[in-house]
Design a protein around this nucleic acid. Structure first.
Lengths: 350, 350
DNA sequence: GTGAAAGCGCTAACAG
DNA sequence: CTGTTAGCGCTTTCAC
């Protein structure tokens, strides 16, 4: 009756092992989890049966009882971003150390997908969640938090100090970049960024740019703000296009400051094609210090985010929350620094 | 007795909804899954209860019964690789279309981690697996296959035609590169690659290099083979170091051919620093055509792998297997092509 | 030392 | 149209 019509191969279960070994299923469970003493001979029988039938306990069924899978989920918008992947690397590092498994859910900057994937992970499979959102979706995050799911939000300030976050101070980081550029006498600084509509983080960087101008007594010029609508998926290309277009208008800045290194790469290319020398004619400054910035021509001067550290700390925090440890500081702000390379020098006087 | 001592907040379950709405749990299940007709009024009561208690069905418990979660796992060694992320993008695209959720497990080129993560995913959580391995681990893959887990292996030829794979012909791809270089009169072609010990794919590329030399009557010179032990984690840097070191010896090739674009970036940098002009003094040819190769200086001539297509096809194949459809061809070989840009020109005669 | 049985949250017969 | 119940694979009392 319950014949081969059933789906898939019936995976071997604890019951099979029990009958193969001629013991009770609780005994099998006990030898697998070493949860109480089992006589050596019985243990051997069980182990043999497991070996013979190539048995692997079903983590999910276990999770259903135990309410823990020792897996954590990471929601991120874009796997191909070097920034994300460096943070992931940091997460992974402590996950491994603490014997958690990290599962990635990638949303491709799709808002609905973000919700779908997060929910799918949360629905009892994972013990906790690290959230890189591509959006300002406080309500959704708040909902998760309220369901008592251990969560930490990375790279986005939330306004709600209750929810654990690990971030940098984006505004003052960019402000520092402007300061740096000003020390090289730049007064015409063109800012290239993602569009700021959806993202606190991006907006804060823009505010940092504005604050930096003000602080250094530079008048704001709307012509010197280039925003890509591209939602990050092809940032380098869009940095290229934006600047290529911009250059045609003939109104030149002395420096480009970008909200991400990837934009800078495209800008470098565009400037080269249009016959400008970097940094002699125009300076270019990035933000992130991703790996590749050590290999551009010229080498990219940029603001370093502590990406791996961000991942380490986020995961540490999450584990503490999961394991119910006392968490002293749940809103962590990481330091940044400027990496001086070749792409910035003194402004050409005009 | 079963008091607040229990871990976590007790998530609201279907039972809670049933009693809140005053119906049977099967009715709740039925409205959630639309699996049989439910009177409008009852349905409303249930929906209200769900809303009110902020209920989300537990996918895992469902999966335990249904033996399907509509999630597929992807095992990959390194999230930061642009090559991988492009393939992932292709996988994701069809996953979304077919209403599957993609879960990534990242192994950081750790062999044991690979097994651990794969097992964790397999153990009943996912419906199928796409496997990018960092290693030649046929035995492990075979074991999975034998357990009747739907699996497709990407970017690695397996020798076992039973197991579904989607790959390119690495050997002839590299051979084509050598041919291409030879058409530009190159006779001293230095090959830069990962060490080939662990990876069929890498080994096949090397064999392609050898075959290419032979075909074009070029004597093999072991001095012109540079292999990085770095296991990929910092390929660009190691391409840089290898070539920097190599250049000091004074024995110059007319062209560098690499097993991955990322190496080429480092080589470009090294050559620049040592005062060589690319391509006038020395040509450089990459392999993969990842995004960034459109932004190097000079633009990188390279072999294009159909990365997104690879992902699309792998996922299509996997879904067909999961859903028990007839699969005509389970070992798919994708075409490649050479993208001509700026980094290769005629060999300087010496 | 070990077994029997309840139950995690859910679906799918089977009844009515 | 709706309710009852068995059972997915596992852990964990409670007995013996």
């Amino acid at each position: 009756m319950v014949d081969s019509k059933k789906r898939k191969s019936v995976a071997t279960s604890i019951k099979d092992i029990a009958s193969e070994a001629g013991v009770a299923i609780s005994t099998v469970s006990n030898v697998i989890n070493e949860t109480r003493f089992v006589a050596e001979t019985t243990k051997l029988k069980v182990l043999d049966a497991i070996e013979k039938l190539n048995y692997r306990p079903n983590i999910i069924a276990r999770g259903l009882r135990i309410k823990s899978t020792r897996a954590i989920g990471v929601i991120l918008p874009d796997i191909s971003s070097s920034f994300f992947s460096q943070v992931i690397y940091g997460i992974e590092e402590v996950a491994r150390k603490k014997n958690y498994t990290m599962i990635l859910g990638c949303t491709n900057f799709d808002f609905r997908e973000e919700i779908k994937i997060a929910n799918k992970l949360i629905d009892s499979f994972i013990d906790g969640l690290i959230f890189f959102s591509g959006f300002d979706n406080y309500e959704f995050i708040k909902k998760i938090y309220d369901r008592n799911i251990p969560i930490v939000v990375v790279d986005k300030e939330l306004g709600d100090k209750e929810i654990p976050t690990v971030v940098i101070d984006n505004a003052s980081a960019v402000e520092n970049c402007v300061d740096y550029l000003c020390r090289y006498n730049h007064k015409k600084i063109c800012y290239v960024s993602f569009t700021e509509d959806y993202q606190t983080t991006v907006r804060q960087r823009y505010e940092g740019y504005l604050a930096g101008l003000k602080k250094n007594n530079i008048d704001f010029d709307p012509d010197f703000v280039l925003m890509s609508e591209e939602m990050r998926l092809h940032e380098t290309a869009s940095g290229y296009c934006l600047v290529k277009e911009f250059l045609k208008k003939g109104k030149l800045p002395t420096a480009f400051l970008t909200a991400a290194d990837v934009f800078a790469y495209g800008i470098l290319r565009a400037l080269h094609e249009e016959g400008f020398k970097v940094p002699d004619d125009i300076s270019v400054m990035g933000f992130d210090n991703i790996l590749f910035s050590q290999f551009t021509k010229p080498l990219l001067t940029t603001l370093k985010q502590p990406k791996k550290l961000m991942g380490n700390i986020a995961m540490d925090l999450l584990v503490n929350i999961i394991e119910g440890k006392e968490v002293k500081e749940k809103n962590i702000i990481l330091p940044t620094s400027i990496i001086e390379r070749e792409s910035v020098t003194f402004a050409k006087d005009i």
